[in-house]
């Protein structure tokens, strides 16, 4: 698959402090790539470097083959982005905002503006002042703005921030359709695992300025999924389970084992019943971000 955004060994120092410690990753065409990490992990700083707002201390960023530092205008032309909040001019209407940014990109026609407005579904309010928009509408206008120049890479920082549940689902579907139908590479950052899980194909986990893991979502979750057994008596059950699968420990009166497959669960369950253990609940749990973090970083908490 074609790589659209390639980041190689990017570092950023502020003063003597190294805040980004050598990131390398790449985005493929038509995939949604998630950036997962707690606040302060360096997600936003990284995104700001990708869009040219911050100059990396070393390393290269190339977009569609153009070096961002050396061929800024050519490289940035292929990027559409929202960095943090979608901040637009409140004293202009939505349409005027789009026109304003369209004037800065060569080859954006009135027709294209109309197109993106329809794409994000803002037709009814587009001539109202942005001041009067809800956060969700601003978010959508932000996306419209990012799509104006027909980018190949779309970078969205916390795109579902401040949206209601319906809005979040719509945004998710929208982002997926952009990747699948328009073949865009989308980079999404978030501190919510559930969001990344539902939206992304691959995910990079960041902590303290480093990427500690890049993998597909299924892989990562599968590996970290757990099964919780509510059983009586616990000790007998534990002996049986140790023979069948990997027991991790006990939590809230339940035995925790690594989730392997549904077949394993069924097999274990059969053994437990055979041995006369009362099974009141078997639950497969995906890790929370916090668990995943503790697991991956060996004890580091979110803060």
């Amino acid at each position: 698959m074609e790589e659209t955004l390639v980041v190689q060994n990017v570092r950023k120092n502020i003063g003597k402090k190294e805040i980004i410690k050598g990131l390398s990753f790449s985005l493929k065409k038509g995939e949604v790539f998630g950036f997962l990490g707690p606040n302060g992990a360096g997600k936003t700083t990284t995104i700001r470097m990708l869009v040219g707002l911050i100059r990396p201390t070393s390393g290269t960023i190339s977009i569609c083959g153009y070096n961002l530092q050396k061929q800024f205008t050519k490289a940035i032309q292929h990027i559409g982005c929202i960095v943090e909040n979608p901040e637009l001019y409140p004293y202009l209407s939505g349409w005027e905002n789009l026109e304003h940014f369209a004037r800065m990109v060569p080859g954006v026609t009135m027709h294209r503006i109309q197109e993106v407005v329809e794409l994000v579904g803002l037709q009814n309010r587009i001539y109202d002042l942005v001041r009067t928009y809800s956060l969700g509408m601003r978010q959508r206008l932000g996306i419209a703005q990012a799509l104006l120049g027909k980018p190949t890479v779309l970078i969205l920082d916390e795109p579902t921030n401040g949206l209601d549940p319906v809005g979040i689902r719509e945004m998710r579907q929208f982002i997926r359709s952009l990747a699948e139908q328009e073949q865009l590479s989308v980079l999404v950052s978030s501190h919510l695992l559930s969001e990344i899980q539902l939206m992304c194909d691959r995910v990079a986990i960041m902590s303290k300025g480093e990427i500690i893991r890049i993998d597909t979502v299924e892989h990562l979750l599968q590996e970290q999924a757990r099964t919780y057994w509510n059983v009586v008596p616990i000790n007998t059950a534990k002996e049986i389970l140790i023979n069948e699968t990997t027991v991790i420990g006990e939590k809230d009166g339940a035995i925790v084992t690594i989730y392997e497959s549904n077949e394993t669960i069924a097999r274990c369950n059969a053994r437990l019943i055979e041995a006369g253990v009362l099974v009141s609940g078997i639950e497969r749990k995906l890790p929370t971000l916090e668990d995943l973090f503790i697991e991956l970083t060996g004890g580091e908490t979110i803060d």
Partner: peptide, 14 residues
């Protein structure tokens, strides 16, 4: 202060 500088500087304009 309004944050719009980020949008302004991420256009293909020097």
């Amino acid at each position: 202060s309004g944050g719009t500088i980020k949008l302004l500087l991420t256009r293909p304009v020097k």
